[in-house]
């Protein structure tokens, strides 16, 4: 089964007098259970592509399919519903609601999804345990390290078992040891739950963990490499 399929995506931004092609006829297919790294130097179009896949932004032309369903023509409300139920997001930093504890941050999205309270508590406890935050459930983001905060964000992204997790430079604010640990966690989750991961990064160390490395430059895919990752 195909988790993600993009067909001929184009997106142009106008900056002053210049047109910037953030996506220039991008087509890509990602299998279910894939672990893909999108790598490009800054400004290469990684975020634009992830946003198009996640239904956060619309391409100017082209088609996006998630699990076989076309999504680029959905309404705002339908896209919100899609993100809520089928896609998990992890961003670079400041992912969390600062006034909620780790457990509450994880529970909040589940509450919006309509998961009953008892179930919510059980799942939140289990997932925080799985990402290595046992004992820190009642801490607020300000009382956690950057790595711990990213783990909470990951826990929140995967707790409802979405088919697809999109991560946009999740290690950019972490030191290399913490970054390694986070990537190992991603791989574990990918192995255990066969969740599809698409991770945008320009960090070479992160690329090493990918099963498949897609290189972009100026909005185009310039290489697509299968790897035997560490």
């Amino acid at each position: 089964m195909t988790a993600v399929r993009c067909v001929d995506l184009c997106k142009t931004y106008r900056q002053g007098e210049v047109d910037i092609k953030a996506l220039d006829h991008v087509s890509i297919e990602i299998k279910e259970g894939g672990f893909v790294c999108l790598s490009a130097p800054s400004g290469g179009g990684k975020t634009t592509l992830l946003n198009a896949i996640g239904g956060l932004d619309k391409p100017d032309s082209g088609e996006v399919y998630i699990a076989g369903q076309r999504i680029d023509n959905l309404s705002k409300g339908e896209l919100a519903e899609l993100r809520l139920r089928q896609i998990g997001f992890v961003f670079q930093a400041f992912n969390l609601i600062p006034v909620l504890t780790a457990r509450e941050n994880v529970e909040f999205v589940m509450q919006v999804q309509g998961v009953p309270a008892g179930e919510r508590q059980r799942l939140a406890h289990a997932i925080l345990d799985e990402v290595g935050l046992a004992g820190l459930e009642d801490r607020r983001p300000a009382d956690m390290s950057g790595g711990q905060q990213q783990r909470v964000a990951v826990a929140r992204a995967i707790v409802s078992r979405p088919a697809l997790v999109l991560a946009d430079e999740p290690t950019a604010n972490l030191d290399s040891k913490t970054a390694d640990e986070l990537m190992e966690l991603f791989r574990e989750l990918n192995d255990h739950h066969s969740t599809t991961f698409v991770i945008a990064t320009h960090d070479k160390r992160v690329m090493g963990y990918a099963k498949r490395l897609v290189r972009m430059l100026d909005g185009r895919i310039v290489a697509d490499i299968k790897q035997d990752a560490a």
Binding site: G54, L56, L82, L84, R85, N95, I97, V109
Partner: peptide
């Protein structure tokens, strides 16, 4: 604004 952007990308609607 930033925080609202995050939770909206998680699937929360402006109405909520």
């Amino acid at each position: 604004t930033h925080e609202f952007g995050i939770v909206m990308s998680l699937g929360l609607t402006p109405g909520r």
